[in-house]
Amino acid sequence: MSDPKDQTIDITVDFSGGLEILFSNEKHHELSVPAQDAEGKPANVGFLINYLCKTLMTDPRADLFVLGGELRPGILCLINDSDWELEEEDAYVLQPGDNILFISTLHGG
C-alpha cells in the first residue's frame, strides 16, 4: 500500500460569475488533490481553498479569492450544488467525485 500522505482524491472544481479569471480563465477543473492535510487530517474544503490558492490560481490577486484567512465576502461555495452552509462549511471532508463550485455574487442589472 502507498503512503497515506501520497494518496489523492479526484474531485471537480468549478468557478463562475467572473472568478474563473483568477484560475486561467477556466470554469471547470478536474483535480487530484491530497487526501490529507499537512497534519494528516482528512482534506476538507478549508484545506482545498488554500490548496487552490497555492496550486491552481494563476492571478496574483489572491485577496480576490481569500481575505483574512477566509473565503472572500461575496463568494458562495457550493458542495455538490448545495450551499456549503447546508453541509459543514469549510469543515466538510472531501469525498471522491465531489463537485465544489465557487461563485461570485452579482449585483448588476
Binding site: 480576490l64 472572500r72 461575496g74 455574487t105 449585483h107 448588476g108
Partner: peptide, 25 residues
C-alpha cells in the same frame, strides 16, 4: 440569509464598467 456580506468594493463590478450582453440580462 443567502448573501451575508457584500464583496469588498474593489470586487463589485457594474454593467456599465464591466459590460453586459443583452440576452444574458
Amino acid at each position: 440569509c443567502c448573501f451575508k456580506k457584500p464583496p469588498p468594493a474593489n470586487a463589485q463590478l457594474s454593467c456599465g464598467e464591466a459590460g453586459i450582453l443583452g440576452p444574458v440580462v
